[in-house]
Amino acid sequence: MSMLSVNNISVSRRGRIILSRLSFSVHQGQLIGLIGPNGAGKTTLLRALSGLQAVESGQVSFDGKMVDRQNRQEVARKVAYLEQNSRSYWPLSVENLVMLGRMPHLGQWQRPTATDWEIVHQTMQTCDVLQFARRPVTTLSGGEQARAMLARALATEPEILLADEPIAGLDPAHQLDVMDKLQELVAEGAGVVVVMHDLSIAARYCNRLTLLFEGKVTSEGDAATVLSAQNLMQCYGIDAHFGKMDDELFVIPRNRL
């Protein structure tokens, strides 16, 4: 079973510590919600996990081996990364954009096969962008673009997906669609780390939450443990309404402290 982990990593930028001796791991079958206030280091952690961020100390390993010693394309086939506010610089058609997700599976001069197209169209369907297949992605609305980008990441059929705020900017219906899709992916055996700010959705969908604050893991575990009044006050500086409905926790921020 694949596992992506960072062990005791530190990252600083211009003298400012971003991550400090932090350890974190994600297994196949886990849907981990990465939460924390702005500037806590969530994106940096995700970039470190994907190998984009060089670490000053500690190790990043995938399947027990250091990521930077492994074949780049092989890792790309198994670990997908969905950037925050990911966008296309050229007005590519949505289907061609999603096909980019198949790239790690294709050789230098290999053309996409019928199977590749099938996977692409399937992920487009599940992300509800199939109707835009031939449209230039730049003509879609922000939410539609975000779904197309998710489809791109899913088209890789990764073992581990690292998604940075994939539901920011989506309407509630599509937020639920995306989270359902991620849950489905996990049910199929993938591991997912998702950065998000909607604590209620995080509590409902994720089977584990990690709360980052000032470059450190402040709290880890199930929603009830992590989303304590104490933690929210300390990390977000808010006090919140907590509630339960159908055995599901919800959190409504109330006051800034």
Partner: peptide, 23 residues
């Protein structure tokens, strides 16, 4: 001419291209 595929993936920016296996 060998860079076609790399340039395609760079449509999504350098970070995403790198995670798609582009050196």
């Amino acid at each position: 001419l060998t860079l076609g595929r790399a340039l395609d993936s760079l449509s999504l920016g350098e970070d995403t291209a790198a995670t798609l296996g582009i050196d």
